[in-house]
Nucleic acid binder design. Sequence first.
DNA 1: AAAATTTACGCAACCGTTTGTGTTTACTTT
DNA 2: AAAGTAAACACAAACGGTTGCGTAAATTTT
Lengths: 301, 301
Amino acid sequence: MQVQALAKELHYEPNQTAIFFQQKKTFTIGIVLPELSEAFFSAAISGIEDTANKHNYMVLLGQSHDDESREKKIVEIMKNHRVDGLLVSITKNTADYSHFEMLKHYDIPVVFFDRIPNLTDIHYVACNMQSGTLQAVSLLLEQGHRVIGMINGPEKLIASQQRTSGYQQALQKRRLKFDASLVVSSDLTKEGTRVAMQQLLAHKRKVTAVVAFNDYVSQDAVQYALEQHLEINKDITFVSYANLPLSSYMAYPPIASVEQYPYQQGQKATEILLELLAAPDKTDTFHKITLDSRLVLAPGR
Amino acid sequence: MQVQALAKELHYEPNQTAIFFQQKKTFTIGIVLPELSEAFFSAAISGIEDTANKHNYMVLLGQSHDDESREKKIVEIMKNHRVDGLLVSITKNTADYSHFEMLKHYDIPVVFFDRIPNLTDIHYVACNMQSGTLQAVSLLLEQGHRVIGMINGPEKLIASQQRTSGYQQALQKRRLKFDASLVVSSDLTKEGTRVAMQQLLAHKRKVTAVVAFNDYVSQDAVQYALEQHLEINKDITFVSYANLPLSSYMAYPPIASVEQYPYQQGQKATEILLELLAAPDKTDTFHKITLDSRLVLAPGR
DNA sequence: AAAATTTACGCAACCGTTTGTGTTTACTTT
DNA sequence: AAAGTAAACACAAACGGTTGCGTAAATTTT
């Protein structure tokens, strides 16, 4: 009792690094994601940070810039910094998952979000693009469009497969048949998207609507269409994904956009990670959370 | 020599937390900034991260969301986590700087960037808005505009004062006289900007051009002008700040935007901080770096 | 008031490195 | 081959907490 008083008297403050060391715990979680400048990820971070801070955890940040080797390096450094756990959204190129497997030997749990690897024994939170795509294509069909192009992302991304699947499902519901040549791939660069759009416009059937991989792809495609002297929302209509806050300022925003709930994904992924950290033994049952995406009409539609 | 070999043999890996503890150094720097979703800050982070990683430092992130009490809390937690140093861009409301002063007792150096407090004994990197504003207003004057409105930010921000000063200077160079009622303030919310724009349009002289505080403000002002049935770039022309990457997709992008070099600011601030960490004794001379802002014409202008 | 119980505190050991000193071993020099 | 020098390693102390144990002090019980 007297020592407590004296401690206060002398403004004693414990040395956290000593505590971290002794407790083998740093109250830090690492975030590894591709690109902070994408609105989706900065929103996700807010969800992560808010949840982490609520439980007195801090977040260590690392951007992979969609470069696999950089992703590996960041994971390595974070491992060395002894983060308690990791939240990861993988690169669009990541094919080798050894740097994540390796973490198991160090008892560092990983929860993936949004861009998740194609593995079975992992924890993840993702947004199923199928439901949103189904709604998007259905909307276009209702409006009378019959030749609907899709600019998809890299084929190995699960999110790309889900988009294709949602597209097919919408057609199926109306007993329409699926034409695989209407689904083209973009590497998500401006140039890649322009090539993809060119393919669609060169299709033997006249494409009157396009489902674009995201709002950025949508805008690049719009730009290309304008250069080909097409009139947006008359000759050709766009629907996309992400629902960027800036879309209301855009010259030709998509008529609707599929919301992917970045904040919620970040929040949920963090909650799962914190749960794993609290009960380190029961790491054998895997959390696989899938939120449904949802189509949001542009204001005024 | 033999022990080295054996170490490799057994895959020995040093425990970083023990090293941190022993060395009284965590190789971590904290970043405190208002809002990641603003393109300016996510670009700044990239500059910070790249520089930090190059020197084997990691970054701890904290968003204040422009809330002073949250800023204080983040600084407190980061202090406890024993970051080696801090990079800070303050809240637009921060008036009390005690949470930063306090860090001196813990030998945690702070380098401010972009949004810097009005103190003399600090390190900072900022971008002088005066030069860019001078260029912006000069451009408008060259184009024949004589009644140029300015939607400025909160008056106590140094960046706002610099904008006003640049505006005045441009007029002075041409021997034109300054009309203070043409400079109005916005709190940077959509509503605040609309009110500001309303004031300008109600001015007794007909405003034909507007210098907006940033690209977001510019777009809100554009929206209001459209609602008033003004034709953009004919009845009224806009110039703004930030040079958002998305501006090329916007319906009515400003004809020019003042670049504030977020990546470079982040980079430079980090370099200074690392230098302070390397030479902890000579902390008495303060680094005050000011980059010049520069007007960038919209593509095709 | 004596015994039993609770609370407070002092003391060591430990976590895994770094640093410094001392000792041994190996290699050079003459 | 003896002496001198360099390299390699072993050992202890320290960083600042936590944990557990033993003892002293304060409190409660009978």
